[in-house]
């Protein structure tokens, strides 16, 4: 006959088992969905490349990784630091940063506007923000193409109003890509900023004014600190997809000025260099991770004092 301690031990073991069983689906999903693809990429990146794309399994090679940083020129038979990849990296980082800043500049006032509406009308404003999400990204991007083209709405309006007399080349420029990225990712900025503004105690703003703070001071010392978590979340949500964007630069950039997503696609397509493509993908992941860590350390550290 088991004593009390034995019963308790068995009960605990059973409870632990049950916990694990209940946890298992979540853990499995995370393992498969998150680390599975990563593991595949990692394996592909250290294989010899196949003849017409693909990889030669079992033939270990670091050529893919070497090609991320160094380029062998078959014409001069020299190896040098690969400038082309670097240019694409920098262009992607720059465009993603500018996109984030632009989304912040447009998204913050929008979120503030919604948060200061009467409670019953806020959900309608939010609905307006989310409506574009109901349309496929591709369709929205092609719609922008229609706006920016030589005989598009913007050029026609400018010509009609006499601002210009010849259409401006807007399509297939970095500016077009930027406009597309900001438009597509703007809701990802507005929603988290709104969420933290909504929780803000607006009596603090009134108190600020009562104490003779200027509008600017109220904004800097009261509003921004209290919605900082939202600003951080929004910036991250915009920056990450923007740096890896594929469709928008492909369609609005005209395929001439690549971003990292397109560079990676090139390797899996006509470049027929899957190991390099896999290595570039992991490099992109590393860049994003580093950027995130730096960003969160710098912002959250200072903002922590104002946290909820």
């Amino acid at each position: 006959m088991a004593d009390a301690a034995e019963v308790a031990r068995r009960y605990q073991a059973a409870a632990a088992r049950r916990r694990w069983i209940l946890k298992a689906p979540a853990l499995l999903t995370i393992l498969l969905a998150s680390f599975g693809p990563l593991a595949v990429m990692l394996v592909y990146s250290v294989m010899e490349k196949g003849n017409y794309g693909g990889v030669a399994f079992g033939q270990f090679s670091l050529d893919g990784w070497t090609a991320v940083f160094f380029k062998y020129d078959p014409f001069d038979e020299t190896t040098s630091l690969v400038v082309a990849n670097l240019t694409v990296f920098l262009r992607s980082i720059k465009l993603a940063l500018v996109t984030t800043i632009a989304a912040l500049l447009v998204g913050f006032p929008t979120a503030y506007f919604i948060a200061t509406r009467p409670a019953e009308s806020r959900s309608q404003w939010l609905l307006l923000i989310t409506i574009p999400f109901w349309t496929n990204l591709l369709v929205r991007t092609f719609a922008i193409m229609g706006l920016l083209s030589n005989q598009g709405l913007v050029n026609n309006a400018l010509i009609w109003s006499g601002v210009i007399d010849k259409p401006l080349q807007m399509l297939f420029t970095d500016g077009a890509v930027l406009a597309g990225l900001v438009y597509v990712y703007l809701p990802l900025m507005v929603l988290p900023v709104y969420a933290s503004l909504e929780r803000m105690d607006f009596r603090l703003v009134e108190a600020g004014y009562d104490l003779y703070a200027t509008r600017w001071k109220v904004l800097r010392h009261i509003v921004i600190p209290s919605c900082k978590p939202g600003l951080i979340a929004g910036s991250i949500l915009v920056f990450i997809p923007a740096i890896g964007a594929y469709v928008t630069p492909r369609i609005l950039g005209g395929g001439k000025n690549m971003m990292m997503g397109n560079l990676i696609e090139l390797q899996f397509g006509q470049g027929r260099n899957w190991p390099l493509g896999a290595a570039l993908s992991i490099t992109l992941l590393a860049i994003v991770t580093v950027a995130l860590v730096v960003y969160i350390r710098n912002t959250a550290g200072k903002g922590g004092a104002h946290g909820h």
């Binding site: 083209s149 030589n150 005989q151 080349q169 399509l171 297939f172 492909r250 950039g253 395929g255 001439k256």
Partner: peptide
Amino acid sequence: AKQHWLSMDYGIERMDSRD
């Protein structure tokens, strides 16, 4: 030559709009 190109993409429709 690439410096003088506007784009490297599929499709002829951009000739319709004179892009």
